[in-house]
Amino acid sequence: MATFSSLRVTFVAMRTIICYLRQYIRELNTTRFLLCSIWIAILVYLNYAHDLEGKIYMWEGLLMPAFTAPAIVYSLAFFRL
């Protein structure tokens, strides 16, 4: 009985998470999502095909390159919104 009750609680909570996802997808601006996805896809391609991270971080130990890379990614993603 306790197991059944526990499973029920898990199922209900899982349904809540699925509701969160549905709500987000319903309210999602498709253009923004596409732009962000394409943007990150380009960066992933550049990184794995042309070692983008290696080039950005080649001055290892300096704070600026480490700051610049995520700042570019983050702010561009924001301003594309």
């Binding site: 987000y24 999502f33 960066l43 992933v44 990184n47 991270e53 990614v73 993603a77």
Partner: peptide, 27 residues
């Protein structure tokens, strides 16, 4: 909720040194 997408982009970018599958799934 507009704070979620840029966070996902930033989060994906910190996985660049990891295996490709992990990087893509991190987004």
């Amino acid at each position: 909720k507009d704070a979620i997408l840029p966070m996902a982009c930033f989060y994906c970018s910190i996985h660049f040194g990891k295996p490709l599958g992990e990087c893509i799934s991190s987004y």
